[in-house]
Structures are given as C-alpha cells and as structure tokens.
C-alpha cells in the first residue's frame, strides 16, 4: 500500500558491451611494385573470429517520502552470449614497405575487413520481486535473436529488440512481417583499419 505523500518511480539503467578475442588470420600477398627500398603489395585473406556480447538491464523501483527514499530492485537482467561456432571473415589489404636494411623494414598498412559473428549462444539471468515481496530469479538459455523492425514490447514502446531464446521467437502478438524478419543477432566486424609497424627477417 502506498504511504501518504509518497512518490514512486521506476528507473531503467542499461550497460552493454562486446569483446573481440584474438582471431587467427591467413593471408596471401602479391608484391605489385618495387623500386629501390620501397615496395607496394596487395593482399587478401580470411580469418576465424570469436567474440562475446553482453547486456545488463537494471530496473529499480524507488519510493520516497518525508522520511527519505528507498530503492529496491524489481528486475535485473544479465544477458551474455558467445558464439557456439567461430565466424569466418575476409579481408583485403594494401601495404607499403620501406627497407632500412636487408633485415629490417618499416611498413604502413591499410586493411578492409568483412565479417559478421552471428552464432551467439548464451543465457539470460533475471531477478524479480513478485507482488508478495518475494525475490526470485529466472534463467533462460538459448541463441541470441534480433527483431530488426520496431515492435510494441516490454515498456509499451517500439524499438528493435535482442532476445535469448532456445528456438526462433514466435510470439502470437507479432505481425507476420516482423516474424519473417526475426534473425540471429550479429556482431558486425566490417570496417577499415590503418597501421604502422616493423618487419624483421628471421631466416
């Protein structure tokens, strides 16, 4: 029962993150042009990539009155997933080499990579307090899915959603067009990078 003069509210706090682990990449390069100490080469390659992604959602209910304020968690969700299969990606690069000696060179490189990790498998851990004030928790395991279109969900508003589910979500309240577009969530590694470094002849 609400106390006289008390105000209540719900706060949502979201933390999220991703981590790309060290990949294993294989490349083939062709020496396109060479003049004295400078050379230019082009390369293509493929790699095996792994990553984890996580999302923490904190929903707290607070009550405040003349005697102060009180916060209590009503639901806390921790979702984390890692791929059950590593993903394959591809890349191309251009590099310029300047030979300081027969053993040592400086290199400058530009690299374009294409890759998506989409086989995320993980768990959702959620804490809740029921109407009687009892604390409980649920744990779900499954694959990570993404609804690429806006839907009415959870707080009654529309946004794209990530969800852990053992099978492809098939909620009856979703329209046909949304159901058709539900797919596995992915982490998109596609991008460009530039770098400088040293190249040493071993033997």
């Amino acid at each position: 029962m609400r106390e006289p003069g008390a105000t209540t509210g719900i706060t949502y706090t979201i933390y999220s993150g991703y981590m790309n682990y060290s990949p294993l990449e294989f490349s083939v390069s062709y020496n396109l042009w060479e003049r004295k100490k400078i050379s230019l080469s082009l390369g293509v390659g493929t790699g095996i990539y792994r990553a984890t992604i996580s999302r923490h959602i904190y929903m707290d209910i607070y009550t405040s009155n003349e005697s102060g304020s009180k916060r209590s968690p009503i639901r806390r969700i921790l979702e984390s997933g890692r791929p059950y299969l590593p993903a394959l990606g591809g890349f191309g690069n251009v590099s310029v080499k300047y030979a300081v000696s027969s053993r040592l060179s400086f290199i400058a490189e530009a690299k374009a990579r294409y890759g998506k990790i989409s086989n995320f498998k993980g768990s959702e851990f959620s804490l809740y307090i029921d109407d009687n004030g009892n604390i409980g928790y649920n744990e779900y395991k499954g694959k990570l899915w993404f609804y690429p279109t806006n839907i009415d969900y959870w707080i009654g508003t529309s946004y794209s959603q990530l969800e852990i589910s053992p099978v492809k979500p098939d909620m009856v309240w979703l329209s046909e067009s949304i159901l058709e577009n539900i797919r596995k969530a992915n982490l998109n590694l596609t991008g460009l990078s530039f770098g400088i470094g040293l190249k040493i002849r071993l033997f």
Partner: peptide, 27 residues
Amino acid sequence: YYFSFSYMQGKMAVGDLNTYLVTFNNN
C-alpha cells in the same frame, strides 16, 4: 621467413547491439 608487428587503429560497424541501443534510446 619474416616476423612483423604493427600498431593499428580502425573502426568496425558493431551492428545489432547498437541498433538496439539507438532505437531503445529513441523509442
């Protein structure tokens, strides 16, 4: 045989996680 090491800076697309965060923020 060669060994090389380099320092690289770049940018990747990220994808669905950011789509979720952006659409949730702008719901």
